[in-house]
């Protein structure tokens, strides 16, 4: 397992946002977490990525106990994330957005001197990553000036620049047109096959998730109600019920 969360729990006041959740992610898989609104998906996501600390339970990543680690430390050992509300450095160039992540990965972020050669190497790598997410040609644009779909791709590219073993994506398809959703979904699939990176997706768009994922975890009321390949999830009675009562987003 690349990621193994055991008995993760987080309460907000009386609300059991996440209650004793177990999660196992196979390396190089695309694993989706779905569930109706308020199921605890985003809280679980934040617990894994270090945005909040769990009240109980442990998270193991690649053999290391990362429970309660800060985002900075997680990024350094190869756990990256993207954001539901696209999060880029808006007033910096697209190229610089990527270069920042590469320098961070290489431990150069605090240096005052940098050789032209190393900066050129960083730019070259950034261009390669931009090619992967089909943003080449936009490297000199301000990130904030890109169309929404392209910003989402850039958000993912920033994560990729960290050379992560696992990348968690918080609703990568949310708020996008049908065309953009297809593009991003294709991008996610291509990243896994080209880079062998493990991808965990929290998503509302159930039909897309069915096509995309190797395995799906379904949450409801802060607990896991199903964890299986897409075909089994589709036929699962508990899942159907959950979505009948909740808001089925498709």
């Amino acid at each position: 397992m690349i990621l193994e969360a055991t008995n993760i729990t987080k309460h907000f006041g009386g609300l059991k946002a996440v209650n004793g959740v177990d999660l196992r992610i196979v390396p190089a898989s695309i694993h989706s977490i779905i569930g109706p609104n308020g199921a605890g998906k985003t809280t679980l996501f934040n617990l894994i990525t270090g945005a909040i600390t769990p009240a109980a339970g442990t998270v193991m990543f690649d053999g290391v106990d990362i429970t309660g680690w800060s985002p900075e430390r997680l990024a350094k050992i190869g756990l990256a994330r993207t954001f539901q509300r696209t999060s880029v450095f808006r007033n910096l160039s697209v190229l610089e957005n990527i270069a920042l992540a590469i320098r961070s990965r290489e431990g150069l972020s605090r240096s005052i001197w940098q050789s032209v050669r190393s900066e050129e190497a960083i730019a070259a790598e950034a261009m390669e990553i931009l090619g992967r997410v089909r943003l080449r040609g936009y490297e000199n644009s301000k990130a904030g000036a890109l169309a929404h779909g392209y910003q989402r791709a850039l958000d993912i590219a920033i994560g990729l620049a960290l050379k992560p073993k696992l990348i968690l994506m918080d609703e990568p398809l949310a708020g996008m047109s049908r065309g953009d959703r297809e593009t991003v979904a294709a991008l996610i699939t291509s990243l896994r096959s080209a880079l062998g990176v493990t991808i965990v997706v929290v998503e509302h768009d159930v039909s897309m998730v069915m096509r995309l994922s190797d395995r799906i975890t379904v949450m409801q009321h802060g607990q896991v109600i199903a964890d299986a390949p897409p075909a089994e999830i589709r036929d699962n009675e508990a899942v159907r019920k959950a979505y009948l009562h909740g808001s089925f987003a498709t």
Partner: peptide, 26 residues
């Protein structure tokens, strides 16, 4: 320099900066 660019990243988006591994406090 890389330092100056990291500073700008903090100004632009501190949360994102943390999630690419920048030690924003330091």
């Amino acid at each position: 320099s890389p330092l100056g660019k990291s500073w700008l990243a903090i100004r632009e988006n501190t949360e994102r900066a943390r999630f690419i591994g920048l030690d924003t406090g330091t």
